[in-house]
């Protein structure tokens, strides 16, 4: 049976339903935390291996980034299979992650083969995850991610000019501001909202 509606009722339905579909756009910070911890680990391991004078000190980067990609693909596939609704945010994030990984591989290849210096690669990588953080912050309208992305870009410039010894702490700091802090805020917000 059909229900007759007034125009005001129509508008109310439209507003309510759009609001309902928007409430599905939430993020638990999983990818932020995964990539944040992986990159921080790669950065610290790189520093330790350099101190040990190991000639392939850069090795933790491709290994851990590839591991991150495998985990992201598996988790993304499982989430996609279970998801009852697919939002534009989900699709955008899938493409962003793919693009992120491809550019990361290209930058690591350029640095690994000596086409560009590692210092430039550090700056490009920081800029790249600044972009991912800023973009997802804009989609989620989540300020900590927008600020984190912006701060990462500032640190991408800083890393070009600091002495070698300080480049690792700068990379580490950029990971903390762009990934770990927003990731934990997202996680807390998600847990809090899930219990309402």
């Amino acid at each position: 049976m059909e229900t007759k509606m007034t125009e005001q009722e129509s508008l109310k339905i439209i507003t309510e339903m759009i609001e309902n579909s928007r409430s599905g756009i939430r993020d638990n910070g999983f990818y932020c935390l995964l990539w944040g911890w992986l990159m921080l680990s790669a950065s610290i391991l790189n520093l330790i291996l350099m101190k040990m004078n190991y000639d392939k000190a850069w090795l933790p980067w491709p290994v851990l980034m590839a591991a991150g990609m495998v985990v992201s693909v598996i988790v993304g596939y499982r989430k996609g299979k279970e998801a009852r609704v697919m939002t534009w945010f989900d699709t955008s994030m899938i493409y962003l992650l793919r693009a992120f990984f491809m550019v990361l591989v290209i930058v690591l290849y350029m640095a690994g083969t000596g086409v560009i210096p590692w210092r430039a690669a550090d700056s490009l990588i920081i800029s790249l995850y600044g972009l991912a953080t800023f973009f997802s912050g804009g989609l989620l309208r989540f300020r900590p991610l927008i600020y984190g992305g912006t701060l990462a870009w500032v640190l991408a410039i800083v890393v070009l000019y600091v002495p070698d010894l300080y480049s690792f702490p700068v990379v580490g700091a950029s990971i903390v501001v762009a990934y770990l802090v927003p990731g934990y805020i997202l996680k807390n917000r998600y847990n809090r909202d899930s219990h309402v």
Binding site: M17, S21, G24, M86
Partner: peptide, 10 residues
Amino acid sequence: SLLVGVESAE
């Protein structure tokens, strides 16, 4: 109205 806000829904 629900479908306008998402890409697909079950």
